[in-house]
């Protein structure tokens, strides 16, 4: 086989066919590299056996950090660094709630989205591997890495065809 990465690419027309195909292909022992869809298909991550993302934990941690920072900032500025009584209120008072809330939301949202971009390797200069240009239009694309599977390309092609793929192509990447 040539140098570089070799893939077989199955094209699926319909999301329900795709979901059934993912289960069939996996149960026949073929490892799926990844499935690319033009829109989110519900249940696809479970069918592929992906674990639940831990991004909600990241969101909570960043949010908590925001709460903490906001409270520290306000207390330090108005009660410690330059203690000042304004409108007869205590140094620390319930009036800290709005700013604390806003900073919680701000850090939580930015922290979570930032984490998402980092773990998904998304950045403006990223060069994605596009297996089939139609995967952002109207086709679901299943990529199988030939190096990861012991079966022959012909066997895998058969498995993909039997699972309902409308066409099966081979795709090669240089690196």
């Amino acid at each position: 086989m040539d140098s570089g990465k070799n893939y077989l690419v199955g094209i699926y027309e319909d999301e329900d066919v795709l979901l059934a195909a993912v289960k069939k292909v996996r149960s026949s022992g073929v490892k799926i590299h990844e499935v690319f869809s033009p829109y989110p298909v519900h249940g696809l991550d479970e069918a592929l056996g992906y674990k639940r993302t831990r991004l909600p934990i990241a969101a909570f941690m960043f949010g908590f950090l925001g709460t903490l920072l906001a409270l520290i900032m306000q207390t330090y500025m108005l009660a410690i660094d330059w203690p000042m009584i304004i409108g007869g209120k205590n140094y620390t008072s319930v009036t800290y709630v709005p700013v604390t809330f806003e900073m919680t939301v701000l850090l939580s949202a930015f922290g979570m989205v930032g984490t998402f971009l980092v773990v998904s390797n998304m950045k403006p200069w990223a060069k994605p591997r596009i297996f089939d240009l139609r995967s952002t239009d109207d086709k679901h694309v299943m990529a199988v890495d030939l190096d990861e599977n012991s079966q022959s390309p012909e066997e895998i092609t058969n498995v993909l065809n039997e699972s309902g793929a409308s066409e099966v192509n081979s795709k090669q990447f240089e690196d």
Binding site: L44, L48, S108, A109, V119, A126, P128
Partner: peptide, 22 residues
Amino acid sequence: LSFGWDGAARTWSRYETVSLIL
């Protein structure tokens, strides 16, 4: 602008979670 989006199932799954929490 697309940040190298490829529509992978793993990314979509994370993306859905991010949208819901946002």
